[in-house]
Each structure stands twice: as structure tokens, then as C-alpha cells.
Amino acid sequence: MRQALVLAVALAAVVAVPWIAPIYHVLLMLPFMAYGVVLLGLNLLFGYTGLVSFGHALFIGLGAYTAAFLTGLFKVRALEVILLTAAVVAAVVAMPVAAFCVRYVKIYFGMLTLAFGMVFYTFLLKFYRLTGGDEGMPVARPFLLGRDLGDMPKIEYLAGPYYYYSLVVLIVAIAVMWRIVHSPFGLCLKTIRDNPAKAETLGISVPHYRWTAFVISAVYAGVGGALLATPTGNVDPTLAYWTHSGNLVFMTLLGGFASFFGPLVGAFVFIYLQDFVMSVVPYWRLVFGAILAALVIFAPGGLLGLFPRRRVIEAA
């Protein structure tokens, strides 16, 4: 009950933001929503399966460059098509990558994902004829639901139609992920997180489940990356850099990986705090590094972990 109430209030607030908040804050919500989608996926792997990826920026990069290629090179402007293509591209790349990575756990899994991420980063950087190198590529303004909103001033476009479009994508992403983690599949992932050897004796084929979770998380990262590209207007290789992957894990930990909504809280706090700190001093990394260190040492459960958690009462 209480959770439903908090959710309803949060949703109402997010819907109302473009009407009540200054335009600057409205625009900050866009990366929040895009990262929200990414982190929902990442946490399926981190919080639910127990695998920490240090390479998920790879899939953000894939999604974002898909948007750039489609709107630029291929003149495909429909956002629906872009998001769908980003999802498919991310899934197609993730399938073989996941097949390699899920054979390992812990530090080796983290290193292998990092290596794959850096392969893509280097590719983006070095094959500049195709990708624009470190300059990156522009992303043209996509059509929303088949409507070309090219005449609208950019700010108005982003703070209005694009804002609500992102919100709908985020809500759909939340609903689908909620379904996934509350399915028999989601339960099996949790057994693997807690005790893979025991899961196997129950007949749960651990690599298959890890693979599936990895591919789903990559699809989420791809869609989130495509969503992120439009407000930025330009994509560049740093999207796929390993520190970006590290920041994703940071955001998840910040909100709390043990809870479903933790990563969303993490993304929100990270983006607003980063913006605030950067407006005061240019050294946001120093402050954020200290915050991360404090989190790891004192509050590994993240912000949501700070509240005494009531046991979720399930229907008997």
C-alpha cells in the first residue's frame, strides 16, 4: 500500500514537471529517464543475478550510435523504429558477448565485459570514417509517433513531446521489468545470485539463465542509449568508455541494488547531484568519488537501504 502511494506521488510529480519546474530541470529529467531504462536492465544482472558488468556502456553506445546512423545515414526518423532497432542491435551483439562472459563470475566477468566494452570504444574512436572518431556523430531530431516536429523550437520539443515520450518508454520499461523479476524466471535468477551450485542441483541451468539476463539487460541499455542520444544531439565514443560503465554501477549502488526501484533513485540522485556539484565547483569527480567511497563503506545498501525495510507482505 505504502509503496503504491509513493509510486503514485512520484509518477504524478514526474508528469507535472514540465508544467511546474524551470525548463533547466525539465531537461535534466531526460537523461534521468534514459539512464533509468538502462539501469533497470543493469540491475537485472547486478541485483537479481549477482553479476557486476563493467562494460554495459557498450550497449548504451550501440543504442546511441544506432540513433545517429538511422537518423543521419539512413534517414530513418521515426523514434519507434529507432528504439526497436536499438533493441535488436543490442540483442544481436549481446548474444555472442554474453555467451563468452557468462562462463565466468565475479572479477573475471567484470574484466571480460570491460574488455568487450573497450573493443567497441576503440572501434568507435579509430574507425572515424564510419563513426566520426572522437568528434562523434550528430543525431537528427526524430519524429514522434510519425509526426515531424522539426518546426518546434528545440527546447520546446525536448521539454514537451520528447519528455512525455521518454516517460512512456520508461513506464513501459518499468512494467516489463516488474513482470520479469516477478516471474518464475526472475525467481530462478535470484537462486543463481544466492547460490549457483545449489541452483544447479535443482535442475536450473545456470549459464542459460545468466545469458538470458545479460541479453535482456543489454536490450534495456540499447533502448536507454537511443533515448539518451536525442537530447544530447550528438554521440561520441566516451559513451562506451569504461568509466561510463563504472558510473552505471555507481548509480545502481547509489540507489540500492537490492530493491527494484533503487536504480531509478540512483539515476535521479546521480544526475541532479552531478549537475548541482558542477554548478558549484568543476570537480564533480572528487565529490562523487568521496560519495561512492562513503557509500561502499557505510551504506552498501544504497539510499533505499537506509530506510528500515519492511518485509514485503506477499499475498498468502
Partner: peptide
């Protein structure tokens, strides 16, 4: 005593701090 994920993240925190400490 914690999971190695947290140790890894702590060293990542040092990466972030150090980069700006050097700029500073």
C-alpha cells in the same frame, strides 16, 4: 570482509577522486 564487488567499486571511487585531485 565484503564481496569483491565492493572492493572494486571502492578503487573506482579512488579513480574518480584522484582524477580531479590532480586537476585541482
Amino acid at each position: 570482509e565484503r564481496d569483491e564487488t565492493f572492493q572494486l567499486l571502492l578503487t573506482f571511487a579512488v579513480v574518480l577522486m584522484m582524477e580531479d585531485a590532480i586537476r585541482l
